[in-house]
Computed example of a mutant assay.
Amino acid sequence: MNLIDWDFAVTVGSKVAGPGPEVSADEAAAAVVELREGAARSTPLVSEFTGLRTTAGTAPVLVVDRSGWLQANADGFAKILTPIVDKLTEKKGAPSGLSAAIGSRVTGAEVGLLLGFLGSKVLGQFDPFHDPHGRLLLVAPNIVHVEREISADPSDFRLWVCLHEETHRVQFTANPWLGDHLMAQMNAVADTIEPSALLDGLRRGAEAIRGGNASVVDIVSSPEQKEILDRVTGVMSLLEGHADVVMDGVGPSVIPSVAQIRTKFNQRRQGVGTLDKLLRRLLGLDAKMAQYRDGAVFVRHVVDKVGMEQFNAVWTGPETLPSKDEIGDPDAWVARVL
């Protein structure tokens, strides 16, 4: 069963995202070099601050354009959704002609529109599902666009972005079980899916989106799936908050204008314009911003209370990860784990 035409999604997404800001060939080449150097420079800085150790070069660093990011994410989503598609194919309750009813090309266009919007925003991303050890993507056009938009020093801003994204690379490569754990959650979602319920959810979702009352994640989740998503939310809040704490902890020692960058970037995170805010809401990006905020509060509280070395017990295995509730109550995590 082919629910999504991924090639068409990339084509549509590339048109929606556009090429990005105008830069000369020399400027583009210089940005690529500086981002690669920034990622390499960030590795020991992140390791020293966090105490997490990883072998250099375990996961490659790729500096990509918007189309490159779109293709990488289409490949990643295709892999993640494979168990769900397989379950839909296997289950006897799947309505006949499901693929024809939805239309892989239509869903490809819809996914392409969403990826295109995100592809013009994302600065960097660690892909933990790319074999064998993941890969780090730095989206050069978007980084250049934002540094110009907030009038940041280019070298400072690029290193600042690298610190955050390199923290994600270190998180996963120092703790290889993390990627397996997240993939297991995707498989668990697949186990809960019933084709008829999925279609009903999509129908309800269309109405909710038109009314602006829910995000994409909210509208297709059964109680079992919400429980899984709560576990994933706890993990993602930890990862994003930890990366924010690292960039704020390391930044002042190596980035002269870090305070100005943080202030301007936080303002930008709120979104600009009604359409942008609506799309952020529908895509669940408001929740993403909450993950940065709540996760950072969790990490700072625990580290202030017990120190970084004891905090690092969080990376022991799935059982020591904070739940969604514990992200909001870090003392509960300390009591349970430490």
Score class of each variant (00 low, 15 high):
159 L>K: 04
183 M>I: 10
206 A>I: 15
170 V>E: 05
200 D>M: 04
158 R>S: 08
196 S>N: 12
109 A>S: 07
174 A>N: 05
135 R>C: 12
185 Q>F: 05
202 L>E: 13
166 E>A: 10
137 L>G: 04
112 G>I: 05
121 K>S: 01
213 N>G: 15
168 H>L: 01
126 F>P: 03
213 N>E: 14
170 V>S: 05
121 K>H: 03
135 R>M: 12
152 A>M: 03
201 G>Y: 02
188 A>I: 00
122 V>K: 00
130 H>N: 13
171 Q>L: 12
118 L>H: 11
135 R>V: 12
160 W>A: 01
188 A>P: 01
148 R>D: 14
164 H>N: 05
132 P>F: 02
188 A>Q: 00
129 F>H: 09
109 A>T: 11
200 D>C: 08
141 P>E: 13
142 N>G: 09
163 L>K: 06
190 A>P: 12
155 S>Q: 05
133 H>S: 05
208 A>L: 12
213 N>T: 15
114 L>K: 12
205 G>K: 11
196 S>I: 15
162 C>F: 08
186 M>K: 15
177 W>N: 06
189 V>L: 15
217 V>K: 06
216 V>E: 03
147 E>T: 10
190 A>L: 00
160 W>G: 03
202 L>V: 14
120 S>D: 06
118 L>Y: 13
173 T>K: 05
161 V>G: 01
167 T>M: 06
118 L>S: 10
207 E>N: 15
215 S>H: 09
190 A>Q: 02
161 V>Y: 01
158 R>E: 02
199 L>D: 00
126 F>R: 02
115 L>C: 05
140 A>S: 08
173 T>V: 03
116 G>S: 06
157 F>A: 03
160 W>F: 07
146 V>T: 12
157 F>Q: 04
201 G>I: 00
140 A>E: 03
185 Q>S: 09
117 F>Q: 12
114 L>H: 13
175 N>W: 10
132 P>M: 07
137 L>C: 02
197 A>N: 05
120 S>H: 03
114 L>S: 14
137 L>F: 03
187 N>L: 08
115 L>D: 10
115 L>G: 11
116 G>E: 00
215 S>F: 13
